[in-house]
């Protein structure tokens, strides 16, 4: 049997990852549930006045999406590291950065992508103007993909450590900050009626850069963790 060529290999790893999540749907639901619950916290903490909430809504939605992504990033490689699947992937003739990219893509499809799709519901609960919903979805789609790629770097570096959970937040939150700035700014611009295009373009540029470079860093990180 000839080994699968690069494209097939990428698709197979992706399918495997998605299948694993499908078998335990609760793992897909948890980040969304977390997102919903944190959104409920804001009216409780800040007071339910609709205009005040609408004022803060772009930032609140983005911060919540970011935290939900942060909490799931830790688990991207963990189970496959524990059962040895990662070592098999490292031995495969196909490059490790390619399989890292399909791990990240699967992670994004099951967290950030879904979150962006359901975000309008929560945006309306926070009284965000309907005119800004399109920008919110678009900025979350672009932004959470960057977050997943960056989170993957942190996850790869800490996967071998017993207590990686807190550490990964310290490592990758500084890298999340620029994404938060431009993501929230895009939604804010849409709320005030100025064109959000430039902010979305910067998010897109970040995504292009991250797709090109992050898989290499993730692969190096995984090698280090597997050697240790």
């Amino acid at each position: 049997m000839s080994p699968p060529h690069t494209g097939q290999f990428f698709a197979r790893v992706l399918c495997r990852q998605l299948l694993l999540v499908m078998r335990r749907p609760i793992e897909m639901g948890n980040p969304l549930l977390f997102f919903a619950m944190v959104i409920v916290l804001f009216p409780l903490g800040l007071g339910p006045a609709p205009d005040k909430l609408a004022n803060f809504a772009p930032g609140l939605l983005w911060i919540t999406a970011l935290l939900s992504n942060l909490l799931t990033s830790d688990a991207v490689f963990r189970s496959d590291f524990d059962d040895g699947s990662l070592e098999q992937l490292m031995l495969a003739p196909q490059p490790l950065f390619l399989s890292s990219l399909s791990y990240i893509l699967a992670h994004w499809l099951t967290t950030g992508f879904l979150l962006a799709l359901v975000s309008p519901v929560f945006a309306l609960m926070l009284n965000l103007p309907i005119s800004a919903l399109g920008t919110l979805i678009l900025s979350l789609l672009l932004g959470t993909a960057v977050l997943s790629l960056l989170g993957g770097i942190g996850a790869a570096l800490t996967v071998g450590l017993k207590r990686g959970g807190m550490l990964i937040s310290l490592l990758i939150l500084p890298f999340y900050m620029p994404v938060l700035i431009f993501g929230a700014a895009a939604v804010q611009a849409a709320v005030t009626g100025t064109p959000p295009g430039p902010y979305l373009a910067i998010l897109g540029a970040m995504l292009s850069l991250a797709i090109a470079l992050a898989p290499l860093a993730i692969a190096t990180g995984l090698r280090i963790s597997l050697d240790a």
Binding site: I153, L157, G160, T220, I224, S225, D227
Partner: peptide
Amino acid sequence: AAGKACAVL
């Protein structure tokens, strides 16, 4: 391994 991980970071 710590040195290499920090280098990547």
